[in-house]
Nucleic acid binder design. Structure first.
Lengths: 188, 188, 188, 188
DNA sequence: GATGAATGAGGCTTCATTCAT
DNA sequence: AATGAATGAAGCCTCATTCAT
């Protein structure tokens, strides 16, 4: 693994546990087994490192989630697949989840950062589709998107808190139904 | 205003903008117009200050929200009132909201902190009531609680992003319906 | 001696020997017997410290030189007194001289820094007087000033190089004559 | 241009603006368009680079100045030619001038460096000649030399400060007269 | 000769906290 | 209670120099 990647991995692990303010760059380098200075060769600033990591994670989550959706799936199936993929990816990568949560709630974060991200584009299109087909509530697509994101977070937090539910497929389906009911029109 | 309170107000404002790692205690004291040292007379530690602020905010939010609910309200009315109170309070106190979000997503935060909080107790009881009365989905009360909290956050974020919607009562009702649909049983 | 002054003294000594780039702030603090941090309490930046020292030195040199000139002296006597005072002050404070030379030839230095300095004002007035009275050559007063400054430097350097001449009043008079001849009109 | 020379040119330009402490070797290499490491192939040390540049400059200045003096010139003519050549060379190469000033006033500099330099030898001989012929004041030749050097510097600084005087031959003659009067015996 | 990644010591500065007054 | 000078550990980052290729 090249040093750049190595540094990102190490940083993510440390950030998740100690937060980025609680993690000296020196420690990242040390635990990555590289010199102090090389970190700044790849990332001119600690902030750059943090941003790079965030965008990288978003990318990976996006690629993973979309790869799960199969052609010809109904809208609900697609949404379900995406939701589940996101939830499971976060459960399997708790460090990533913690890091992202922390980042998104820090002053470093600005929405601008991700507006252009492919995964935002795709989600919005999907949301718009559901609205146009009268499956979703008649609200802005961005709201649908944000609601789904929020519900993913809620699910992840809950499943992490009560580990015994993590393998319970039936329970996860119920979690999804809550999210779905939030955005979809109530059938009579 | 006594110095203790003054410090908390100043700290909140600065924390909201710069984060707590970006806000030196010296700056808090300076902008509060008090001496550097006195801060540590009232709060032995920066961490103590932060925790105190957090619990204080929760208290105020709790008192405010519950004071809005009137006797004899139906369950949905109560939930609605609480939801709306929380949303509006957060909109009117954006610094508080930012501070809390930041805190809850930092390594400082542990759930233990608030378990005992009156507002958690009350919310859980309300959730349980809805479940028992077969109005809510048959899921743990903690899940209902967390979902509602998440939906409040989503609403606040959205309303802040699109300021023109903040005065639109109709729109806020729709937001509430999303939250309600998430936790309630679907009527056929 | 208060810590601020103590730091300036120590800094000057170290700067003279090692240059300011060769002198860590930590070393200044250490040799001054104070804590590392206090330096930045008095001087927010190493650069501020350096500038402060420079202006302070100029002040002291100015006060010292002018205090030597007596009322009713002729122009030549005044110039001589000032020249001698400057030369001797620099000889007695070699660290100061080295520091100033270094500073004036570093990128830190800008003429703006001292334009407003009382000592510049006074020197220019004196120069103008000599020009008006047809004692000095008919050149701009700033040129007279700069020439005298340069001749002081030359004298100091020479006297430092050949220590045996430092006590030789006769020799110093010859040095002054060189400076005087440079700026004054040649008597036929 | 070979890389060695290229590096020296780039270094000089950067040094003049930012000083040598403000100019990382990495930046020199980058702006010269060569690799980081190659600099240390040609100059084992940053200090070696700096010294090499200084001596190189002195050489060039020497060669240029002496080439201007013609056979059979009187002493004053020779001095004038040398003075003017030095002044004009410095005006045309301001970076070089800044670099030299900075170097000569830094802890890197020691007189030893140039004692052996041809240009010092020649200047001293010329000075001695003037003294022996009773044209110059009866002072050590080294003093004459240093005075002339100082007057060159003063002239250059002044002409740079007031650019409109740079083309004024008449004015430059007056500048030279000041220098000449400093070292020469006053004709009655 | 040439590249540029890699090293690691060390510099400047910050800042929570303490303490004399 | 109040002040603000003082402490010193620690953080981020720089940069001359080395080294593998």
């Amino acid at each position: 693994m090249d040093k750049r990647t190595l540094l990102m991995h190490t940083a993510k692990r440390l950030f998740a546990v100690n937060g980025f303010y609680g993690t000296p760059t020196a420690r990242i380098a040390k635990e990555a087994g590289v010199s102090n200075g090389i970190l700044f060769h790849y990332f001119p600033t600690k902030e750059v490192l943090i941003n790079a990591m965030y965008l990288d994670l978003k990318d990976r989550l996006f690629v993973y989630s979309t790869s799960q959706v199969y052609k010809g799936a109904t809208l609900k199936e697609s949404i379900y697949t995406l939701w589940l993929a996101a939830v499971e990816w976060n459960l399997e990568n708790p460090d990533d989840f913690d890091f992202m949560q922390q980042f998104e709630n820090s002053p470093y974060y600005s929405l601008e950062l991700e507006k252009s991200h492919g995964y935002v584009q795709m989600s919005l299109e999907l949301a718009q589709k559901g609205i146009d087909e009268d499956i979703f509530k008649q609200v802005p697509s961005t709201l649908v998107f944000q609601t789904m994101s929020g519900m993913v977070e809620t699910a992840v937090r809950y499943l992490r808190l009560f580990k015994e539910t993590q393998e319970d497929t039936e329970f996860k389906n119920r979690l999804f139904e809550m999210a779905w009911d939030a955005i979809s029109k109530n059938k009579i």
